[in-house]
Design a protein around this nucleic acid. Sequence first.
DNA 1: TCCATGATTCTATGTTAGTGGAAGTGTTGT
DNA 2: ACAACACTTCCACTAACATAGAATCATGGA
Lengths: 118, 118
Amino acid sequence: MDKISALQVFEALSSSARLDTYLLLVGAGGTGIVAGELASRLDMAPSNLSFHLKNLAHAGLVTVEQEGRFQRYRANLALMRQVTGFLTDHCCGGHPEQCAELAAPATSANASPSCCEP
Amino acid sequence: MDKISALQVFEALSSSARLDTYLLLVGAGGTGIVAGELASRLDMAPSNLSFHLKNLAHAGLVTVEQEGRFQRYRANLALMRQVTGFLTDHCCGGHPEQCAELAAPATSANASPSCCEP
DNA sequence: TCCATGATTCTATGTTAGTGGAAGTGTTGT
DNA sequence: ACAACACTTCCACTAACATAGAATCATGGA
């Protein structure tokens, strides 16, 4: 994971349409969703959705698999974790071990204090 | 953490100038960096940097503190963890406990398999 | 082979974000 | 009070992104 990859991930998720798409795919888990169903569920024009899916796939956030004449998309949650890891690795001048609270598992419920807070 | 907050975070970090700024602040840890030093280190016009810092602060990724006539900025890494938690909470139809590997601590070194991979 | 279906690519149009320079706000020191 | 400094806000201009519709490509079935 380098800065350019991280930037691509953030650029990909910076659009409401793409974040919605990604969240839907994350919710679907390993089953994934085919493009047509995504379009109807998101109420999006197929060409528009295709544009955004291509963007997400380019960033590595989703994967595609051909299924007959369908295209099945799946979210790649591991990449998000790598991005978070990339950020925390740079914490405190490259010594993230100084920030113990960052190693704790993260959920939206627990709002831990900032890393290296004085 | 809701979808709008997550979107703001991604929008904020989707610019190379802002990601550079954020990484610099993350590296500085709790010490933070004043606006002028940020501008010289990033080789950015002060007005431009101010624009981006305001964006980052609006998303909650950085905090500001007045220090005489200086403005000291600090990164808020905890927010990134909340965003990751927000995404994983939606995994597999709202049952993230099905994805054990996601609970493991994340670094850029370990590239774990995707959540819910079949 | 021909047609219907699923999805993508192409093309244009409107909207939004990024940038630097000038002017303004607040703070410190004389 | 005045001047110097640190930073921000305002204002234009340029570049990039989002969207919809038409055309194109690929697959599966009659």
